[in-house]
Design a protein around this nucleic acid. Structure first.
Lengths: 234, 234
DNA sequence: AAATAGAAGTGTATATAGTACATTTAAAAT
DNA sequence: ATTTTAAATGTACTATATACACTTCTATTT
């Protein structure tokens, strides 16, 4: 059957990862970008990417790229879109599938980060990116906004324990607008997916704010019975 | 610079089109499928697909496949997802990007259809499909349901002139559940995007039902000012 | 010409969800 | 004891979603 494929052209295939993090102190959404220490485009900023190999699936390739860069596995990751314009990469014809990942900034080892030339850059002040990476980022941002409205993926960006203030700050950073405190709390608490801890966060106030944990098991159980997460608030 | 790419593997890249149509008489959502008259998988059912060529973008490839099959251009089309598992195609390693398209069944020339071995098959009674095509279809169906809720893409499946009953039937076919007649009409009419015609459809009732037209220009204008289409009804 | 039949067309009351908004509470620091 | 700072809290109002049954129109039949 080999002859069937004889005249069919083959292509370079890449994956590019849009890696989101959230800085709980600066209250800013960030992107993990690579300052290229190699040609082509030395010194310029890009997403973390890599070519798809013979023996790996697309998802595998994306995981590999993400893993190599961060040293982390089991991260939240999702395929987004495939960019197939003829001249998107000036070096060669490369088709690239974008993935977006959510990681807690605190989980990232600064050593590995440094070694790979990876830097967290604030969403509100991104450098110019190579090729069509900015377009990829914009699509990923849209997706993130829509996603956190109806799926509890925002928690991937926070530590296990977090306060309601921190959670609200995260949503404000993603939505890029202020959110009403009482409505936000009413809505998230009414879902009964947060377990209040017997412990307070005391860094940012005298009174201290109660820690909560997201109860994944409970969410899964509810979701199985037709429950829909919703934090699309004013 | 050529040496940079010397050790990078290349891959076969395909596109597969999930082509939706709506049968206004049978009130059924349909898929345009190919009964293969060639090897491999002769006699089996598949989506319309094709390999990405050297000189065309992914979108171009999808348009070409769609155009060749239907003889139509300027159809509604959207990239969906890229399937990159190692063994999804038993013949060779092929990575495939799926697109979904919406066309009016009535627009399709039966001659071209016949020539290409294309057949409309009801969504509620699909044959077994090759490879992972069924998975592609299921994802496309989900996407269609979500899409018609908040974008006026359903009209792509209807003729220019349609009745409110026909529009409701379409939504019921897509949502796969009945929809409240008065609430549906209230909602669609309150958006003021349908222009009532001076003409009735008289095939299906003595009284006749008024024809309407979707006003695209008005929609675009409203959307530019922050309006959101919504037909997520009970 | 009156009666019939069959689908199109219509409105209101209720329930639910979304929104706007200001004061009290806790605890550390002085 | 007082001050200061951020956390925590509830209610009234508005808008949207939902449930639901009868009337209208007109071709066809009698």
């Amino acid at each position: 059957m080999k002859h069937l494929y004889a005249n069919i052209p083959k292509h370079y295939l890449a994956v590019d990862c849009i890696i989101f993090g959230y800085d709980i102190v600066e209250k800013e959404l960030k992107l993990l970008l690579i300052k290229r220490s190699f040609e082509p485009a030395l010194g310029r900023w890009s997403l973390a990417g890599g070519f798809v190999q013979e023996n790996e699936s697309l998802d595998d390739a994306a995981c590999r790229v993400l893993c190599t860069l961060t040293g982390l596995s089991d991260l939240y990751m999702e395929q987004l879109y495939t960019y197939g314009e003829m001249n998107r990469d000036p070096g060669a014809r490369v088709i690239s599938t974008s993935y977006f990942a959510l990681i807690g900034i605190h989980e990232l080892d600064p050593e590995i980060q440094k070694k790979n030339g990876a830097h967290w850059r604030s969403i509100s002040n991104l450098p110019e990116l190579i090729f069509d990476h900015r377009i990829m980022v914009d699509r990923a941002l849209n997706e993130l906004v829509e996603k956190v409205k109806v799926y509890p993926v925002g928690f991937e960006l926070l530590p296990e324990k977090f306060t309601l203030v921190q959670l609200q700050n995260l949503y404000e950073a993603i939505y890029m607008r202020p959110v009403d405190k009482r409505n936000f709390r009413k809505k998230i608490l009414s879902m009964e997916l947060l377990d209040k801890q017997d412990e307070k966060e005391r860094e940012t106030s005298k009174k201290g704010a109660w820690y909560y944990r997201f109860n994944v098991e409970k969410y899964r159980e509810l979701a199985r019975n037709g429950f829909f997460f919703n934090l699309a608030v004013s």
